[in-house]
Design a binder for these strands. Sequence first.
DNA 1: GTAAGTAGTTACCTACAGGTAAGTAAAATA
DNA 2: TATTTTACTTACCTGTAGGTAACTACTTAC
Lengths: 115, 115
Amino acid sequence: MAREITEVACPHRLKASRDALDVIQGKWRIPIIISLTYGKKRFGEINKDIADISPKMLSQELKALEENKIIVRTLYDSMPVTVEYSLTELGLSLNKLLEELLIWGIHFRETIVGK
Amino acid sequence: MAREITEVACPHRLKASRDALDVIQGKWRIPIIISLTYGKKRFGEINKDIADISPKMLSQELKALEENKIIVRTLYDSMPVTVEYSLTELGLSLNKLLEELLIWGIHFRETIVGK
DNA sequence: GTAAGTAGTTACCTACAGGTAAGTAAAATA
DNA sequence: TATTTTACTTACCTGTAGGTAACTACTTAC
């Protein structure tokens, strides 16, 4: 019965969904990921892309995304040290989820606001 | 160029994604939605499904989900007053997004933990 | 009358997300 | 020598998410 599915399958499903949510949640993660889908960028470039983020928050969120293997930080020891951030394979694999989030968000807006 | 897409299309995309995230984010929203995908339920039944939620949090989150038109609250004035919660069309339409969240969550776990 | 069930509410507390402002270090430029 | 650029860090503050515990109101069963 449905009861069995609920009790047996749900804890695992819940844990995975929660993991995914934890990675993309917060105010800045998605903007950062989207900023990097258009290619590798430097700290200052991301900062310009996302106008209202403070360097503290950007630094903090980049660190978190790096820990979760969503992005990689590459340091070039050129004359003025430059750092570049880019999406990993795992980061790129978020594409479908982000797309679905976007689609539902639009649907939500149409349903709530539109009528 | 990509630059143009970034600057023109992103603010709207971001807003929609953020809207969607706001609806499902937090510790209890997804568990509650999943609990209701298996049919309408009463307060006490959801409380039993999600063992560690407090009545305060359940009440609070049900109210928020109702405000966002994800669920409906139906009151039956039978002898002991009973209340039933069920998913709306909009709530049911979250299915694909939740599925995608689950799929990526599993992929994430395999990539991070598995190897 | 007392207990138990249904569906919550109220008051209070803590932890973390996020924000502001300023400081840091190293090299390039003027 | 002083200023600018890049990439941050540090200290401090506020607001919200979430938690605990106890209380409420109504009804049925014992």
